[in-house]
Design a protein around this nucleic acid. Structure first.
Length: 682
DNA sequence: GAGGTTTTTTC
DNA sequence: AAAAAACCT
């Protein structure tokens, strides 16, 4: 390496900060501090995320979280560089060169885009003679550590989580923050000013600060408050839509402002305490809370093992589901004008605050998929754009669960009744009244089903159905029969498809074993976020026409060459989330080395090896197929096993209902049987 | 406290 | 809808 030159800065370590915006229990940072002088770097390269350009509230959070981290690092003595980039890896190389650093440390991420990008970073920098080390900061256990008795990954959450809770070793104990950091020389590496907020967004964002305080020290406060307060009653309160009894940690956890291990440890300490006191409810509360932590873990686990889970069902049957492509439905849902009060209240809360109780997330997303039968990825995208804690892995898991496209997901043909759920989660109608002022005067008896209220009641409450509050956009009975028909159609299509595969005439569908994704709606059809909400919706009645909707266009605009017009399958359109674009031009090579991105801490190797060897073979082989080349052909290394995972489910009797016996009948679940066969079909 | 019912939960 | 848990006799 060239020496640091006049600056004398050489021999220092770059800590690449991403979604680990904390100084406490940050393994990459701690290791770097131990190794000598440190420079922390944050690279803002949102274009790399493709469709998943962070939404307004998410960027707002990041902006504040970063500034807190910057001042904390500063007071510890470290330099913090920020870079604006369209290619993180290139920027890293530049930073390394201009600082004369010899090492790069960072913590693992598990979303599909990061997996590929981080691997590329490791490869490129290693080639430059830089020592690259990576760490687990985000999970209790790394995905490859948690396997069944045969060394294979789990396919259901409960099995996964039971194993996590009974691992032979505990999750690493949280580390204290460094006392002092020696800074590397940044004199020749200027920071870029990062802009996270557009002018038009400032008004809306100002409101967020009333309810939320981003940043690692605030995250710690939130954790302490929760653990010492609402946690003990978590099990009792958890079902109320409207209460402040959840932990509110999810945005903090998303950005890594607090370590999940610390959360785990603190909760466990309380649990032991309450167990000794014989406080059964408290003990159970901790179990339930930890389970939600476990779901977060599982979402990373899924994403790592099945890196297309944010855009493709894990179970393949739904491939042929005839989604209703109706942007008016979509719009009504977003605006909270479906005619189902609980759904509408939730959607308006989401829009106004960027937040939604987990229960309500389930209600609105289930309504979206089962009643409206809109494609789940639209809903997921909207969540991504509007949620303060938008998180690709968690949201993908959530939507796949709701859509019934994971082995332990909701039943396909089950439709939840928003009226019933309304009385379950909001028995007194307070939540609905808060978010739907136009219904505020309706008696509780009718609040969750105004359509069946007597005219006199409606009149007394000032409700005019169809005028100031809509009639149900889809009747539940109609939804049920439409869903039945849709499922029938799906079976038929699938049967036909399977037959055509067997006859070797699978042309109409090409050789694609992937679902052809339905494009997101075009910009022009989405409203624009004209004007921020200035008043508190909670107390200010507005007519529903006033309800504003965030725009998806910010995200869509950044995606170059998106063929947003082809929303029907013609077999040749590409998946629209560009995970495989401009990421890595060498599918075959990437395969083996990818593991090394992670495996530098003597990680037990388990079956990941096996899976990857297979993946390697298969990728190499399939990369010669026409389709892959046409697409520019790069796939994260796990992709083949993902495909086989879903395809094998498809191969089951009729897919549905057979998942419980799946493991017995398919011991090789994680490998690549049908991939090869199918990729040859073209 | 075994056996049958109702309620709750399902990621 | 089905399983688990809680609640009855």
């Amino acid at each position: 390496m060239p020496s640091g030159g006049g600056g004398g800065g050489g021999e220092c370590t770059i800590v690449w900060i991403r979604r680990d915006l904390r100084v406490e229990d940050n393994p990459a940072l701690a290791a770097a501090v131990r190794a000598g002088p440190v420079i922390a770097v944050f690279i803002w390269a949102p274009e790399e995320e493709g469709h998943y350009y962070p939404g307004r509230v998410s960027r707002w959070w990041l902006m504040h979280s970063l500034s807190q981290l910057q001042s904390s690092l500063g007071s510890l003595g470290a330099s913090f560089i920020t870079k604006r980039s369209t290619d993180s890896v290139l920027s890293l190389i530049q930073v390394v060169k201009s600082t004369g650093a010899t090492q790069l440390f960072f913590n693992h991420l598990y979303d599909p885009i990061s997996l590929v990008r981080d691997h590329r970073a490791k490869e490129s920098l290693t080639e430059q003679g830089i020592v690259v080390r990576t760490f687990n900061a985000d999970l209790l256990y790394e995905p490859w550590e948690v396997n069944d008795d045969k060394g294979r990954p789990f396919n259901t959450f409960s099995d996964f989580w039971n194993r996590c809770l009974s691992m032979p070793y505990d999750p690493a104990a949280p580390m204290l923050p460094p006392k002092r950091i020696i800074s590397g020389d940044v004199s020749r590496c200027p920071s870029d000013t990062l802009v996270f907020e557009e002018e038009s967004e400032k008004g809306s964002n100002a409101l967020l600060a009333r309810a939320w305080s981003p940043g690692w020290s605030n995250a710690n406060k939130a954790l302490t408050t929760f653990v010492n307060g609402p946690l003990v009653e978590y099990s009792v309160n958890r079902r109320k839509a409207d209460s402040a009894t959840t932990s509110f940690l999810s945005p903090h956890l998303h950005f890594g402002e607090v370590s999940v291990r610390k959360v785990f440890h603190l909760a466990r300490i309380k649990q032991v305490l309450w167990a000794n006191e014989g406080n059964k409810a408290g003990e159970e509360s901790v179990n339930l809370f930890l389970k939600s932590i476990g779901l977060r873990e599982y979402s990373r686990y899924i994403s790592f093992n099945h890196p297309y889970s944010h855009e493709k069902p894990l179970l393949g049957q739904i491939k042929f589901f005839p989604w209703v492509i109706d942007e008016n439905y979509f719009k009504a849902w977003r605006q909270g004008r479906t005619g189902y009060p609980l759904v509408d209240a939730g959607m308006r809360e989401l829009w106004a605050t960027g937040w939604l109780h987990d229960r309500i997330r389930v209600v609105v997303s289930s309504f979206f998929v089962k009643v409206l039968q809109l494609p789940w990825r639209w809903g997921m995208k909207y969540f991504w754009d509007t949620l303060l804690d938008a998180d690709l892995e968690s949201d993908a898991l959530g939507w796949q669960y709701i859509s019934g496209t994971i082995p332990d997901g909701r039943d396909f043909d089950r439709i939840d009744n928003p009226q019933v759920e309304g009385y379950k989660f909001d028995p007194n109608g307070e939540y609905v009244r808060r978010w739907l002022p136009e219904l505020a005067r309706l008696p509780t008896e009718w609040i969750h089903h105004p359509w069946s209220a007597p005219g006199s009641v409606l009149q007394a409450a000032g409700v005019e159905l169809g005028m100031n509050y809509p009639l149900p956009i889809v009747e539940l009975d109609a939804a049920k029969s439409r869903l039945q028909e849709a499922l029938c159609e799906m079976w038929q299509q699938e049967t036909a498809w399977r037959a055509s595969i067997e006859n070797g005439t699978a042309e109409g569908l090409g050789d694609s074993l992937e679902e052809t994704p339905i494009a997101f709606p075009q910009d022009s059809q989405m409203e624009v976020d004209q004007e921020p909400i200035r008043n508190n919706l909670a107390t200010n009645a507005r007519r529903y026409e006033d309800q504003m909707v965030p725009t998806l266009s910010a995200s869509l605009q950044r995606v170059e060459e998106e063929p947003s017009s082809d929303r029907n399958s013609d077999g040749s359109s590409r998946p629209e989330v560009p995970t495989d674009r401009a990421m890595n031009p060498q599918p075959g090579r990437q395969t083996l080395n990818l593991l090394q991105t992670f495996r530098n801490n003597n990680i037990p190797q388990f079956n990941i090896n096996l899976g990857l060897q297979n993946a390697h073979e298969s990728t190499a082989e399939s990369s010669s197929s026409g389709r892959r080349e046409r697409d520019g052909g790069v796939v994260p290394v796990w992709s083949p096993s993902t495909s086989s995972y879903s395809e094998q489910y498809v191969g089951e009797d009729n897919g549905i209902g057979s998942s419980s016996s799946y493991l017995q009948t398919h011991p090789q679940s994680h490998q690549l049987i049908s991939w090869r066969r199918l990729s040859q079909a073209g």
